[in-house]
Design a protein around this nucleic acid. Structure first.
Lengths: 151, 151
DNA sequence: GTACAATTGCAACTGACTTTCATATTGCCG
DNA sequence: CGGCAATATGAAAGTCAGTTGCAATTGTAC
């Protein structure tokens, strides 16, 4: 479940500022939470962590900041097959897209990069003359452990 | 009131009955709506159409029936990149999975089947030893028209 | 036909997210 | 350094999709 976090800290902040967006205390806090997350977090988890750093952050500000990051293409929104309710999860947009696999039994989320996935997206762009902005491949099923374990 | 498609029960109805599930008036109606849909419908659209056939169907019954169909693997739930709010869309599960492309400008949804997609899923099952139950590849971007048209 | 578990409808509830609007803050200008 | 317009924030209320509890009804097996 650990994410490949090969990013420099403060990168999100630098990116936002270079685009002429205002850097507030709250945004800095939320950005640092998103940036240092070792797993996929939903909005309320991000809020909780942000409040540990700065207790006066509102829920609304978290939602607004996540929307901003989404619009800027700096984070991706995931559904993770709606395993727990309808919440969304967020992760920094990686250099290379990956697939999310959600185990329907243990709930584990696994990521997988694949050359075939990259080629498939290339095919879509070419054959459908469709210019891809964002893509999401989520798979639900049973992980190696769960499909070989009883009960 | 007798229902329209009683003489030739649709595949969904036959499938549910063969699995020993009860066939109620309401389910028959909802099934026929899902079965004859020419586009992706959300729960409230399904309700509205079901009520045209049988005005006494409750919203809750639609949700419960859709959940049943999902659990039985007879319909797939789509997000279509959350183009309009957080609603979900439904479609009968096809023989062969396809990709959904959502144009971020005109909102058009296009479907695309691809051998590469099938191979990618095979790779996931093999390389990750992950047994796929359901998969969803959604792509947001710009369709051929929208990316070549001004404004 | 009867029994009885499954299904339905209603109303109230939940949870995630958004809007409104008055107040506060930021980044820029001189 | 202020001044200040544009932007962001927080609190409360609102929206929207979907769910739950429960009494009444219905489908199916006998």
């Amino acid at each position: 479940m650990p994410l490949p976090q090969t990013e420099t800290p403060g990168r999100l902040q630098a990116e936002l500022m270079s685009r002429g967006l205002r850097m507030t205390r709250q945004r800095r806090t939320i950005l640092s939470v998103v940036e240092t997350a070792k797993q996929h977090l939903d909005a309320s988890q991000i809020l909780r962590r942000a409040r540990k750093i700065d207790s006066h952050i509102d829920r609304v500000t978290v939602y607004r900041t996540l929307n901003l990051l989404k619009r800027q293409g700096l984070v991706d929104e995931l559904d993770l097959m709606h395993m727990q309710g309808e919440k969304h999860y967020y992760e920094r947009r990686p250099q290379r897209d990956h697939i999310h696999m959600a185990c329907l039994r243990c709930g584990k989320i696994t990521e997988f990069e694949s050359d075939l996935f990259d080629r498939l997206k290339g095919q879509i762009q070419r054959d459908c003359r469709f210019s891809i902005v964002v893509s999401r491949l989520e798979v639900g099923g049973y992980c190696a452990q769960c499909r070989t374990t009883d009960q």
